[in-house]
Nucleic acid binder design. Structure first.
Lengths: 204, 204
DNA sequence: ATACTAAACGGACTACGGTCCGGTTTCTAT
DNA sequence: ATAGAAACCGGACCGTAGTCCGTTTAGTAT
């Protein structure tokens, strides 16, 4: 349970941190490399921590020290793609980024999120599951805050709670299962999201 | 994996079924009884299948033959309360039951659901987790269908998908964590739900 | 009553996520 | 170069969900 991933991903000489030991760095590299291979070959669902430790020629304890949990590993594997998506809605061009109306930005956000989830679905599901509450995923918090700001700007009475409703409406499990299990086209999902946001934010 | 809970809960002489054996009936009774005691005393989260088997003086295999999985057991435990709630929105008085406008019925449905979840949260979370997709829970399917019908009546373009969005917005995990972990009052949840439905279904 | 069969039983077994801790390695100070 | 301490390592170990299969037992036909 209680576990703090010491230097989650400090890449280089971060200011005060006591310089990550070389064996630790080497093992982290080995682990990430092996994890990516395993995911590519068998999919994220099939990745077990034992197999990873074995493939990376590392003890199991090392895997958990590095990533804290299976969910933590998946989040690390996702972090690049996630950062890019975040840059998109925080600093990118409209309508996703700043410059458009809250409604347009929310529509674009949902569409972007849906396609992002469809590309990284397995990883996202694995990252969200087994976490006591999926909301603890940092990226989820950021998305929630983003929507909250836009909803407030659009005059929603309780933007925090409404953003939570929308967050769950975009739940990775929901999106992936809609498309892959229940046969809903991505297009229908984005269209419905647009309808939801449009009606929700239509000036009264 | 593959497992069909033979006669999920056939209470009496169901037509053609080859009459459940007496030892099976007796063990099911023992199991349900023990399960309820354990849940009352320690909470649903803390219930382990081993402990249940032990307490019911029954082999572990028997537990799984009866309920298929931990989620299945939780669903069985829930079924009474769930049936009552279902009767409420299908046959009860308006605004929850038939007779009110779709918007009013949806508002009432969400409010009822929120309070229902807050009362049976642990069981619901346990029933939904570990199922490959939570949508497979039969009660969830029925709720989804109910909302779909109301949304269609209210002129939503793709009621099936919209109902799915709303289903996830009312996710048990979300509701329970909002209230118990993030300190949101049930009142704020129901108010926000009302705002969501009202704006969504406002005549354009 | 007896014999037969299909269903039910039980508990040993597997797989997996996660924890623990004694031993080892790297870095730093001298 | 040496010593000491902090960080790190590995793999044995634990708890839990779920499976398997040889054995027992309830119903049925004679």
């Amino acid at each position: 349970m209680s576990f703090i991933p010491l230097q989650p991903d400090a890449p280089l000489g971060t200011p005060g941190l006591p310089h990550e030991r070389s064996d630790a760095a080497r093992n982290r590299e080995r682990l990430l490399c092996a994890a990516r291979e395993l995911v590519d070959e068998f999919g994220a669902e099939a990745l077990t921590m034992d197999a990873l430790a074995c493939k990376a020629k590392v003890g199991k304890g090392t895997v958990f020290r590095r990533f804290g949990s299976r969910a933590g590993l998946m989040m690390t594997l996702l972090s690049d793609a996630e950062s890019e998506f975040q840059r998109g809605f925080m600093f990118g061009p409209p309508p996703l980024g700043p410059g458009a109306s809250p409604a347009d930005r929310l529509v674009a956000f949902g569409e972007g999120r849906i396609y992002f989830v469809l590309e990284n679905g397995e990883l996202l599901k694995a990252a969200g599951a087994a976490t006591r509450n999926r909301f603890d995923v940092p990226a989820t918090k950021l998305s929630h805050r983003h929507m909250e700001v836009l909803l407030r700007e659009a005059g929603i009475a309780d933007p925090w709670v409404m953003a939570m409703s929308l967050t769950y409406a975009l739940d990775p499990e929901r999106i992936v299962d809609d498309v892959r299990v229940r046969g809903i086209s991505p297009r229908r999902l984005t269209d419905s999201w647009r309808e939801l946001i449009t009606r929700l934010l239509k000036a009264s």
